[in-house]
Design a protein around this nucleic acid. Structure first.
Length: 820
RNA sequence: GCCGAAGUGGCGGAACUGGCAGACGCGCGGGUCUCAAAAACCCGUGAGGAUAAAACCUCGUGAGGGUUCAAGUCCCUCUUUCGGCACCA
């Protein structure tokens, strides 16, 4: 007899057509009773095709979506493309095509040739693309809402400039001094730019981390990025000047050890206090260090440099005069851009003081006296007891710090303060391919936001769209775009020509999905349905967006909440960070030439096998190295599965009264409960191995038709095509209404089948395995009887005959140990 | 430098809350089927020792120490790899 094997191409064609025709994955937003918003970070097309990383991440999201659907949830699983912005534009530059045409093609291809091929249950009827005017109209609306709320501001600042992308970048987009996208070394540039005041939410962004269910590593990354530290602001008067310098310190307890002050080169007081004799040196030093990139500054870390300004500050506690220096180891953007240097208790100050022969005074005695070294030999950064600190001597660091700040408060030259590393979000970009910032500059009325009824400010189609690098965006050269009329006074005015950071385009997209067909609103927060779908129930994505996308979405949601627009302040109840697929241990990238394309695999082994292969590589949270050596294992598994299903289903047609053995039923019950628990925890690899284990048992015994149905159901989220094929062939009335396996209810396990009647208990002697006994499960509670049985076990007996038992341990149902 | 995660067979990885280490899969060895091969199926597979064969014994989760009747799992020290942050006062 020739066995029919599963034809994945045939099944793919057949079922994707039926799923499309019956709108299987379309979600009824309004009438859904058990909503489950299953969101996966939409991709940005920055290459010709999706790579295996997209397939990996999205498959993990699709599996939980399918599972939830079978749990009776109304699953909303939308998809779209983050196709506006610098990544797509850079690709367009590379291949020399206009980004509009290119993105249109790429998104269509991703959707029609790739996403559909892998069998994900997306509701494409609500697709969004960030470059569609119907979408970015609302991105601009959001900008204006933030502007009106006082959260958007235009200011001149030293900003990060990527010379290769020819645009500014937000702090979050600078990774170790390099551009997040192209890895060029980022320079500083003084420009007037738009910022969102995310720092207003520093504390809330931090506090809320305790109440959201997110992958811990993302929480930790955000916490570090926000970088809260507690300390004090202290004012130092300047000798012979009326200015004051304010410094931030986390160690007010070391104030008596401050022997000099350091200003960052960007500090506004530098030139006002520098004495005539020092002017030339200071001038040269500051201009040199401003010309350096961040990375050059940090690379010279070992060799700290600085110059004396000639001025002196007066210590507010003891009136001592201490010199004021300028040095670029002090950063302008953190705290006040100035520090009190305590070389005895700070490694950086210590190194600097040693180099320039500045005094080192101990303010904290080392707690560990045993290894007392000279203060000029070694820095001590720990806590201790105050010394050389006048009436504060003898206090601990904690007490002393508090007492000193309280005293300064009395003198009105100091106070407790909290500082954050988080900076405001720079959102201007000197690029073409994103939403224009909807602002008009009028000579008479000043800065005027574009009124909502005039949105969108459409991005003009131009041929000359490449970045110029002169600090202005390409739109600045588009006469018809720039010149406009003021919405307030009707006089002639000019448009802002920078575009919005792509992270704003993608910062709110999840709000748009359910309402993507609506023209009059961005999302309908007044509707009943809004409360059903938000906050998003589950968000899956990569941890590389911890401090970018995920921080911005939280900020935007908080801002919308405070405006009274959304009734919650966190966008995602649960966020799960999936792992990444590497190739030969390295991140896949075009430059390394190690990108794996999923298409050929899907073509060869089918979407089902490919999905399972990807998920079987390792835990979804960890990713893994792509290596197709093991791929035959999963195809073999699916083929065996299919063959066994047919074996039992076909034979049942002949004889319905086939008696199944209890063993296989029990094994199935165990499998279902394991697979269920594993999916809930995103442990897809062990869910798959549980099904494989089951197939090994199934091979030996037959199953009743109904039970075969259960196995098909638990396979369905992983292998949607094969499951559908089996289901339609054997479990539904042909010719009737189409009832997909993907809408069947997930099997419920009969708890009785999970209980074992006989339990095997290992017996150890001095912790080493020496034997086993089997005990009927109703006798497990009787420790005396179990131990008695254990003692008479053949192997154990020989140890017990020649030794005395010192101790006997029995852990119910688990283990027996004799200490002899 | 700081923070986080991890180190388990030839390989990817299992092991709930301290209780039989190596599930499942790959690879490999042997076999069945075949003229032969492929496919499929069956048996074996951590290392070492012992035996005619078994039973059996010793070692074994990056290294070293510790807690415990019992440690891959907990504690301390060290080490390597990966990820994040990085002169943040």
């Amino acid at each position: 007899m020739i066995e029919k094997t599963f034809d994945h191409k045939e099944a793919f064609k057949k079922w994707s057509k039926v799923w499309d025709e019956t709108s299987l994955y379309k979600c009824d937003i309004e009438s859904a009773k058990k909503p489950f918003y299953n969101l996966w970070m939409f991709p940005y097309p920055s290459g010709a095709r999706m790579h295996v990383g997209h397939a990996y991440a999205s498959t993990g999201s699709d599996i939980i979506g399918r599972y939830k659907r079978m749990q009776g949830f109304d699953v909303f699983q939308p998809m779209g493309f983050d196709a506006f912005g610098i990544h797509g534009e850079n690709y367009a530059i590379k291949i020399g095509q206009h980004p509009l045409k290119l993105m249109e093609d790429l998104c269509n291809r991703f959707r029609d040739e790739q996403f559909k091929a892998i069998g994900h249950g997306y509701d494409w009827s609500r697709e969004i693309r960030t470059y569609w005017p119907s979408y970015y109209k609302w991105t601009q609306w959001l900008f204006i809402k933030l502007y009106e709320a006082g959260l958007a501001e235009r200011k001149e600042a030293q900003v990060n400039w990527c010379p290769s992308c020819k645009t500014v970048l937000a702090d979050e987009q600078v990774i170790a001094g390099e551009c997040e996208r192209c890895h060029s070394v980022v320079k500083k540039k003084l420009l007037k730019q738009w910022f969102f005041k995310i720092t207003k939410y520093s504390q809330k962004l931090l506090d809320n981390l305790d109440k959201i269910d997110w992958s811990p590593k993302v929480i930790e990354a955000q916490r570090n990025w926000i970088g809260r530290s507690e300390g004090a602001l202290i004012k130092f008067e300047i000798f012979n000047f009326k200015f004051e310098i304010e410094v931030f310190t986390t160690r007010p307890d070391t104030l008596f050890g401050a022997t000099y002050i350091v200003l960052s080169p960007e500090h506004p007081l530098v030139f006002q206090i520098t004495t005539v004799g020092q002017q030339e040196k200071v001038q040269k030093y500051t201009s040199d260090s401003l010309a350096k990139s961040e990375i050059e500054r940090t690379l010279t870390e070992k060799e700290k440099t600085g110059v004396f300004t000639g001025a002196y500050a007066i210590s507010p506690v003891n009136g001592k005069q201490i010199p004021i220096w300028v040095a670029d180891y002090v950063l302008s953007g953190y705290g006040t851009g100035a520090i009190m240097a305590v070389p005895a208790h700070d490694a950086r100050d210590f190194a600097f003081a040693r180099k320039y022969n500045l005094p080192i005074i101990e303010a904290i005695a080392r707690i560990n006296e045993s290894n007392k070294t000279n203060v000029t030999d070694e820095v001590y950064e720990g806590d201790g007891v105050l010394v050389n600190s006048g009436k504060f001597d003898g206090m601990t660091s904690k007490e002393g710090g508090e007492a000193i700040v309280k005293k300064l408060e009395g003198l009105e030259c100091g106070k407790f303060a909290v500082n954050y590393k988080l900076r405001d979000w720079l959102i201007s970009r000197q690029r073409y391919w994103s939403a224009p910032i909807p602002i008009i500059y009028c000579k008479k009325c000043g800065t005027v936001p574009v009124p909502e009824e005039s949105l969108p400010v459409e991005l003009p189609y131009v041929e000359d769209w490449k970045p110029k690098g002169d600090g202005r965006g390409p739109l600045a050269n588009v006469y018809d775009f720039v010149n406009t009329v003021c919405p307030k006074c009707g006089g002639s005015a000019e448009r802002e020509t920078d575009t919005l950071d792509n992270f704003l385009d993608s910062g709110w997209y999840f709000f748009r999905y359910p309402y993507s067909q609506r023209e009059a609103v961005p999302f309908d927060y007044q509707e009943e349905s809004f409360k059903k779908w938000f906050p998003v129930h589950l968000y899956i994505g990569g941890a590389e967006h911890s401090v970018l996308h995920l921080m911005y979405t939280r900020f935007l949601t908080m801002a919308l909440h405070d405006m009274g627009i959304v009734p919650f302040d966190e966008p995602f109840i649960k966020f799960f960070a999936h792992g990444h697929v590497t190739k030969n241990g390295k991140k896949m990238s075009k430059s390394l030439g190690n990108i794996v394309n999923p298409d050929e695999y899907i073509d060869k082994i089918g979407a089902d096998a490919f999905r399972i292969y990807l998920m079987f590589m390792g835990p979804y949270s960890q990713g893994g190295d792509f290596n197709d050596r093991g791929i035959s294992g999963v195809t073999r598994f699916l083929e065996r599965f299919y063959r066994l299903a047919l074996r039992d289903l076909k034979s049942l047609k002949l004889s319905k009264s086939l008696k199944t053995k209890n063993e296989v039923e029990k094994a199935l019950a165990k499998t279902i409960s394991k697979v269920t628990a594993d999916i809930e925890e995103f442990r897809y690899n062990t869910a798959i191995s549980a099904m494989m284990t089951f197939v090994n048992v199934w091979e030996k015994e037959t199953l009743l038709k109904e039970r075969v149905g259960d196995v098909v159901k638990i396979l369905a989220p992983f292998a949607p095509f094969m499951a559908e094929e089996l289901w339609q062939e054997y479990f539904v009335d042909k010719g009737g209404e189409f009832k997909s396996v993907h809408k069947e209810l997930w099997p419920i396990v009969d708890k009785n089948l999970l209980v074992e009647d006989i339990v095997t208990i290992p017996i150890t002697v001095n912790g080493k395995l020496r034997g086993k006994i089997t005990v009927p499960s109703d006798q497990l509670d009787d420790a005396t009887a179990v131990l008695k049985m254990a003692k008479s076990e053949e192997q154990i007996l020989k140890y017990l005959l020649t030794n005395i038992i010192k101790k006997e341990i029995y852990i119910k149902g688990k283990i027996i140990n004799f200490v002899i």
